[in-house]
Nucleic acid binder design. Structure first.
Lengths: 236, 236
DNA sequence: CTAACTTTGTATCCTAACGACGCATTTGCC
DNA sequence: GGCAAATGCGTCGTTAGGATACAAAGTTAG
């Protein structure tokens, strides 16, 4: 009875058109006050020379998020990094080899933490601003993820994933300025984050700076809980 | 040369695992101060009796957004409605008939506009609050879309898609209160929208209300342009 | 060593937005 | 006409955000 309906469903599903499914990871980093993206030389001869995102097909019984984490782990050796689904790209002609749907994931990681096995894989960091053209529709994907990041970083403490464990307020501000493409007043920025009460003063100071060193802080992930938006968040 | 590389790519793509791909539409409506969702009795015997979202598989050469628009058109007869991609759901076991990936789209539409062909299709509106269980993982999908809507409606003028062309400020406030699950001060709400200068006074009044009628307004889509967020949008 | 320079860190002032609330006005209903 | 219910307008106090002043700490050039 039940088994019959399951069989019927299986038959139905078998009649569906099927498409290959991939995951592409837009991996952002931050160094020298610049937003970076991790890219690799495309492995397709068709795109000879062009750069592309890190991606792979989704395995048969693999969850989508797991696929994205797997790619990150395989390519960078990193575990436990921030990762979030952003959007699906599925134009019928986006892949030269036939239709391929891809799910874009955005990831943020601390460059210092994984300076490893970069070059052996033809993998490297590129300034986001300098990216002109990529293989497939990857330029479009990167841009969507960047827009997503700009928006998200203002309402959620993601930025800290891009910084070292301990950072100065100036580094934090440089991060925000680089991502949002604006300049802000140093003192108001400080005031803002001080009032949020989410930074831990480590009682350590910057080293190797050629001017007055600033205090180093850590982000207090424990203390953070999503603020309940007051209704008057209505703002458009 | 080029043809060779194209052939090679085709062969590569052919080796990818393939999955059926569907689109599911979460269609919100608003009536009697309540947020509604358009649901249909599942066409699978497996889910006998349970309700499900409006969905269909994506055709071979069909763009994803087009598929979502097609479903809306087919099922509701509506064109030109608001529609946006929200998230992909791809747990390997989310469909009883085998793996099926689905892309959730969120749509908002004015119930008055399409009171048509509802019942002939076993299609009907249900209070969002009363939805307890749905076929597949559709409950989870609806909830994600609802969360998406709550967030989105505060920063983008979507709500007007759920209202008649002409509406009173009370109706507008009821909409926001229903979706955000809060109560707001009537006078501040009025002040807020007045200051935004996006409502056109139609010089008409409500009809058929059992108390003092309010003015009717229209939303001025032309005048709206996305506000540039001041940096200090940082708020978490 | 000292003066000039750079950057950090704290405090103050002003304005605009927001939340709370008072109240007169307009309609329906008895 | 009087009451209830909702609309429409205004005011007041608080607060967050932007601009600016200035002292403190450390580096570099003479």
């Amino acid at each position: 009875m039940k088994k019959n309906s399951v069989n019927a469903v299986h038959h139905l599903v078998d009649t569906y058109p099927k498409v290959p499914l991939t995951v592409d990871c837009v991996i952002f980093g931050f160094e020298e006050s610049k937003l970076k993206v991790l890219l690799i030389k495309s492995d397709l001869a068709f795109f000879q020379g062009k750069l592309s995102l890190l991606g792979d097909f989704v395995k048969n019984n693999e969850d989508l998020d797991d696929a994205a984490y797997r790619i990150l782990k395989e390519r960078t050796g990193m575990n436990n990094v921030f990762l979030d689904q952003v959007k699906v790209f599925g134009k019928p002609d986006r892949h030269p080899g036939g239709r391929v749907i891809t799910i874009a994931y955005c990831s943020l990681l601390n460059i210092q933490h994984h300076a490893l096995n970069i070059h052996e894989n033809e993998l490297d960091w590129y300034d986001y601003d300098a990216i002109k053209e990529l293989a497939f529709d990857h330029k479009e994907i990167v841009d969507e993820c960047y827009a997503w990041l700009q928006k998200r970083i203002q309402e959620h403490p993601l930025g800290f994933n891009l910084l070292p464990d301990k950072f100065s307020l100036r580094e934090l501000q440089n991060l925000y300025e680089a991502i949002l493409g604006v300049t802000m007043d140093r003192r108001n920025f400080r005031k803002k984050f001080a009032s949020m009460d989410l930074l831990i003063d480590t009682n350590e100071m910057e080293q190797d700076v050629s001017h007055r060193p600033g205090k180093l802080y850590q982000f207090n992930f424990n203390k953070y809980e999503k603020k309940k938006r007051k209704w008057i968040g209505i703002d458009f």
